[in-house]
Design a binder for these strands. Structure first.
Lengths: 353, 353
DNA sequence: TATTGATCTGAAAACGGTTTCACGCTCCAT
DNA sequence: ATGGAGCGTGAAACCGTTTTCAGATCAATA
């Protein structure tokens, strides 16, 4: 039987009313030094901690922030949640964490769960921020929320992100500068990541600017198992005019692509250069290091929570905050091979790697 | 103004008392078909969701599990939290997440925060499970909790873990079988991880069994920056009788050690073999793949939550659940180099292994 | 017909805090 | 002396549920 000591116990012990105890705890009104001392002593002796539940019921506000992300297994989200946690802790708040496992249909239900807990606000990464019924609902009920990683098309929505298109554009230009002409764009399912789509646009812009052909994106299920992955890539990289570089919509996908290419006997970066997006810590640790767009993932989580508090406390209007990114090239992004990787033979004799 | 629609609103609309509405929602007592239909209609029309706060205040139990881990940035904990989240969701519970950032002093305060929220139970990874005042407090207040990753010395405490000593012993034996005789043990700060200490014991047991000298562990601060790391390792691996293998207390440390060795011009695994512990996903993705003890991290989180529910619901006694592990060798764990890596100068000529 | 029992329902009391309101007291300016 | 302001305090209302208890209705039985 936990929680046997309530504010009433404290009041009895201190010989005062519960109202006075409450005032001492919250400093919500002046109390005499003498009474305050008695109350504090009673609190210490009893080991009393006010129930957040009781408090929340009256104020209809908890010291809790709801968090919704696709998955904790992706270090990007783990890092941003770590940032949120740190920022929330500074304000003496706790995170109520949920994950959709990349199922957009789960979003609505999970957000409802969080709202039922009277969270003070929400930090979300949704599959797609546009025309999102769940977000509209939150707006209608005027529950403050901030998006992370999502980059909304309107400034009327609160979000912390990077300029995905500009970043991917810069990364693509780095590839082009390294001599690559045929660059493939590999993505996770667009339906589960609007970021991915924005990044594709950046890729296309860079390609067009350089007068090159942007290829249609190859959508891979990057939760799928390795075999299917290798199979899908064998088709793309086995052809005569195979790309010399692969731009992946995120780091986790890039890692998985590198593994698949290796299994196909294709060397990275000697035969094919690969780059990702996000800048996960382990991309830096590996060798060769993963070329990518380095985004301040943890900071994004922190800023999201800070922006959320700003909105909660001062009623600040939602706004989009775009954080700076930096390019991490080298490593898996090398100069394009001088000649076509596979000597093109007279048909139909097949190329040897 | 969120949450304007309460159970009272529903009752008015359905033309019945709030007690009846409650009964319909929870099926806690029979209701006539007619009234039930009216109530359900009212709920749907109003979009009513019962407040978890109100409910919790009455029952003194929330549908919430408190989670305390060292850090989300370590994929091991991220994975086990992902498992907890999945298991909790199946039981319609939510996770209240906190992280200590490897500061043991923060444990007490954070657990108090969680308890103040009336969590139904707790899942924790603490720095050290033995003589832990915080755990004793939970026990005294009979708040159910389960440890993850920690391996308590008594069976009276609920925990989900692997047999750390046996696993490290097996890994060490694999190193010995590969011809290594001088094996260094590198650890994070023992004060922040009792697992690390248990693993060291497994290492020592294997070394002794093989008649080899177990060296004292080298404690590294694996949150520290790379430079200090390389410096510490330069001393160890620069000497004449340098180890040919390094056993690291966890994968993250192993990754960081590999990077530091690379910076020192030492090849892995050609010059020095390295192994970790945990089996993080990215160790498998890198090349050469990371030799390690593969532990079912995500499953551990799931099992921990299931065990917790068992304790909450059936009052089951705490027990330690040791999950199976498997060795992942090869990759960064190769045969010991035939000769000493660095040509030895004349005086005072040492024996070659 | 009266009694019993089974169903269904509503009023009201918790649960643990916060907050409003009113009241008594002191102090100071009139 | 008198009025007003200000301070410290306690009583009580309130937040949104669940749950107990008692009452109402009705069918079946004695």
């Amino acid at each position: 039987m936990p929680r046997i000591v309530t504010i009433r116990t404290v009041a009895e012990r201190a010989g005062c009313s519960i109202a006075t105890v409450s005032r001492v705890i919250n400093r919500s009104a002046p109390t005499s030094a003498e009474v305050e001392a008695r109350v504090r002593a009673a609190i210490d002796e009893l080991g009393f901690r006010p129930s957040e539940i009781g408090r929340a019921l009256k104020t209809l506000k908890t010291r809790t922030l709801g968090v919704l992300i696709p998955s904790l297994t992706n270090p990007v989200f783990a890092a941003s949640v770590a940032g949120m946690q740190a920022a929330a802790r500074e304000r003496r708040h706790t995170l109520l964490l949920t994950a959709t496992d990349y199922d957009p249909a789960a979003e609505a239900e999970l957000v409802e769960t969080l709202v039922a807990q009277n969270v003070a606000g929400l930090v979300l990464t949704v599959a797609c921020a546009e025309n999102n019924a769940t977000l509209d609902l939150l707006e209608a009920e005027s529950i403050p929320f901030v998006l992370v990683h999502n980059e909304p098309d309107t400034d009327a929505r609160a979000a912390v992100c990077v300029d995905n298109a500009a970043a991917t554009c810069a990364l693509t230009e780095a590839m082009i500068a390294a001599g690559h002409r045929n660059i493939a764009y590999l993505a996770g399912r667009f339906a589960t990541s609007d970021r991915s789509l924005r990044r594709y646009e950046g890729y296309r812009a860079a390609m067009e600017k350089a007068g090159l052909d942007a290829t249609a994106p190859l959508e891979l299920d990057y939760l799928g198992d390795a075999p299917s992955h290798a199979a899908a890539l064998a088709g793309l990289f086995g052809g005569l005019s195979a790309p010399t570089a692969a731009l992946c919509s995120n780091d986790l996908l890039a890692l998985s692509v590198i593994g698949a290419l290796r299994d196909l006997g294709i060397r990275v970066p000697d035969d094919v250069s690969v780059a990702g997006f996000d800048g996960i810590a382990l991309g830096r640790a590996m060798s060769p290091s993963l070329a990518t767009v380095d985004t301040p993932t943890r900071l994004m989580g922190e800023r999201a929570v800070e922006l959320l508090f700003e909105m909660i406390e001062t009623g600040a209007a939602p706004r989009v905050e775009r954080l700076p990114f930096s390019l991490r090239s080298g490593g898996t992004l090398a100069a394009a091979p001088k000649r076509t990787r596979r000597p093109e033979p007279t048909p139909p004799s097949l190329p040897t790697p």
